[in-house]
Structures are given as structure tokens and as C-alpha cells.
């Protein structure tokens, strides 16, 4: 009896599922099982494998040899390119994520106006997001070429001699940041959806309170779309730390490692230098960096993101 009372009052008491509920649970798991299998086989499994391989010396072609923390020791103490690639990636990430959010929101606000042909404008701005990365990279080579590129031509019209964008330790990274903004349309679509979900009565109320356009934007629009901004921010951080294609195709990390992004460096070790163990260790560091930034962002989001209906 005592046991029965204790079980009844426990908040963790196991509830007995009805046949139907059990049946539904099994059905649910069966339906998501392709994803679970895919996740275990292609994401979680490789993550565990990378954790192990990061502790080995492994050239892919012969069995791995366990070397403990030697890869990490080398990375932190004797590999200047590890720090260089981390720095290049961090600068790029910071620049692209913040500029991407600002430009994306600005574009979405513009494209949220009631103007004729708006669908066409929206399509045009979104198109870059669906073009193949390598094709885009070749296009940028043309755009930024020093002698005949359109950017330097435009600058020459206002009397400025443009730099050698893709072969300058100063200008190559800014050029890559500019390239990344070209695909801002992907995020813009989400902002646009967010903007269209802002109740119009909030603007009316703000207007009645005497708010101008800027005050309405700052006090109504931004808080209301802050979950979308936060989502794009997280996705932007994750994506920008994994940037690869443009630098692989356009500069191959040069000049003088000024565009040696972290994933390119990892790729070189894995597939050019036959150091898969070291590459796996680099991958683990990348995972930790992205995870840390994501956790920090989520912590900050409690103060900066407004969720409608959330009880704080």
C-alpha cells in the first residue's frame, strides 16, 4: 500500500500507455526512422569516429595508430596555420553574419512594400541563393579581376583605382565578405515571412502613440521578427565557419594564406597531405567552436529575442 501511495504521488510515475497510444508511438518512430538511421549513420557515427580518429595518426590508406593528444598538442603549440585559419574564419564569420543580417532585414523591409512587380523583385533577390557555388565562384573571379573586372571599372568611373582584390593580403578577405552578401536573399525570404506575420494593429497602436516610421521599426518590427533574426544568426554562424567553395576555387587559400579558411585547411590535411587524423582533430575543434558560439547565442537570446506569448 505504501508503495502504491508513493508511486501515485511521484512526479516521475510511469504512466501506462493505452494500446492505441503505444501503437501511435511505434508508428511515429517508424515514420521518423529513416531520419534517425540517417542521423546515426551519417552524422552521429562520423562524429564519434572523428573524435577517435583525432587521437590517431591516420593516412586513410593504412590503419590508424593511436597517438593520444599529439594532434591537439601540435595544433595548439606548433602549427601557426591552425591559428591563422581560425582567425581568418572568425573575421569572415563576424563580418558576414552581421552584415548579412543587416542587409537581409533591410532588403526584406524594402520588398515588403506594396509596389507593382514585387514578386519579380523578390525572385531576383532570391535567385543567387539557388545558383551552384562553383559557378558563382567563377563569376566572382570575373567581377573582381583587377584590369577588366566590373568592380574596378565602376570605381574608375568615380576616379578610384581599384585594388587587386583577389591577390592582395589586405583586400581578398573583404572581397570574400562582399561575395557572401550576394546570397543574402536566402535569409531575406525568411525575414520577409517574419515581417508579414507582424500584426498590423501593433503598427496602428504605435502610430496612435505618436511613433514615427523609425520608432515603429525599432520598437515593433525588430522585436517581432527577432526570432527570425536569431534563427538566421545561428544558421549564419554555422554556415560561415564552414565556408569552403569560394576560397577553394578562387584563391586556394592565398595569397599568402590570407583566405585560408578553417575548412579549407582541414580539407588540405585530409585529402592533400594524407593526415586524416589531424584533419579529424581539426574537425572536432570546429565542432567545439561552433557549438560554443551557438550556446552563447542561445544564452544571449533570452535577453535579446522576443517570443510572442512567452511568459517571462
Amino acid at each position: 500500500m505504501a508503495t502504491a501511495v508513493s508511486q501515485a504521488s511521484s512526479p516521475f510515475r510511469r504512466t501506462r500507455l493505452s494500446r492505441t497510444a503505444l501503437f501511435e508511438n511505434i508508428a511515429g518512430y517508424l515514420f521518423i526512422s529513416p531520419w534517425i538511421v540517417g542521423f546515426l549513420a551519417f552524422e552521429f557515427g562520423p562524429l564519434i569516429a572523428a573524435g577517435y580518429l583525432g587521437l590517431t595518426r591516420y593516412d586513410i590508406l593504412t590503419p590508424p595508430n593511436f597517438v593520444g593528444l599529439a594532434n591537439y598538442d601540435k595544433m595548439f603549440t606548433r602549427d601557426p596555420l591552425f591559428w591563422k585559419s581560425l582567425w581568418v574564419t572568425a573575421v569572415y564569420s563576424l563580418s558576414t553574419v552581421f552584415l548579412g543580417v543587416i542587409l537581409g532585414v533591410a532588403l526584406a523591409v524594402l520588398l515588403n512594400q506594396k509596389v507593382r512587380g514585387m514578386s519579380l523583385y523578390r525572385t531576383i533577390y532570391y535567385l543567387p541563393a539557388v545558383v551552384s557555388g562553383v559557378a558563382v565562384a567563377y563569376m566572382w573571379i570575373w567581377v573582381f579581376t583587377p584590369e577588366a573586372g566590373i568592380v574596378n571599372y565602376a570605381l574608375s568611373l568615380i576616379g578610384i583605382t581599384g585594388p587587386n582584390w583577389l591577390f592582395s593580403t589586405t583586400w581578398t578577405l573583404p572581397a570574400f565578405v562582399a561575395m557572401s552578401l550576394w546570397a543574402v536573399g536566402g535569409g531575406m525570404v525568411l525575414y520577409l515571412a517574419g515581417l508579414q506575420g507582424v500584426p498590423t494593429q501593433l503598427y496602428e497602436a504605435a502610430s496612435l502613440d505618436g511613433a514615427g516610421r523609425w520608432a515603429s521599426f525599432w520598437n515593433v518590427t525588430l522585436p517581432m521578427i527577432s526570432p527570425v533574426i536569431f534563427f538566421n544568426f545561428i544558421i549564419g554562424i554555422i554556415g560561415s565557419f564552414q565556408v569552403f567553395t569560394n576560397s577553394f576555387v578562387i584563391t586556394n587559400g592565398g595569397p599568402a594564406n590570407s583566405t585560408l579558411f578553417f575548412v579549407l585547411y582541414l580539407y588540405r590535411h585530409a585529402f592533400e597531405n594524407f593526415r586524416m587524423g589531424y584533419a579529424a582533430a581539426l574537425g572536432m575543434i570546429l565542432f567545439i567552436v561552433i557549438m560554443t558560439l551557438t550556446v552563447i547565442s542561445f544564452r544571449l537570446s533570452n535577453r535579446l529575442v522576443y517570443y510572442e506569448g512567452r511568459i517571462t
Binding site: 573571379i141 587587386n164 583577389l166 591577390f167 584563391t251
Partner: peptide, 10 residues
């Protein structure tokens, strides 16, 4: 010479 980086675009 041609500026490095420019030959790719040609």
C-alpha cells in the same frame, strides 16, 4: 607581368 590573380579571369 600581368597582375597575379588577373590571368584566371582571362
Amino acid at each position: 607581368s600581368m597582375k597575379p590573380g588577373a590571368d584566371q579571369a582571362l
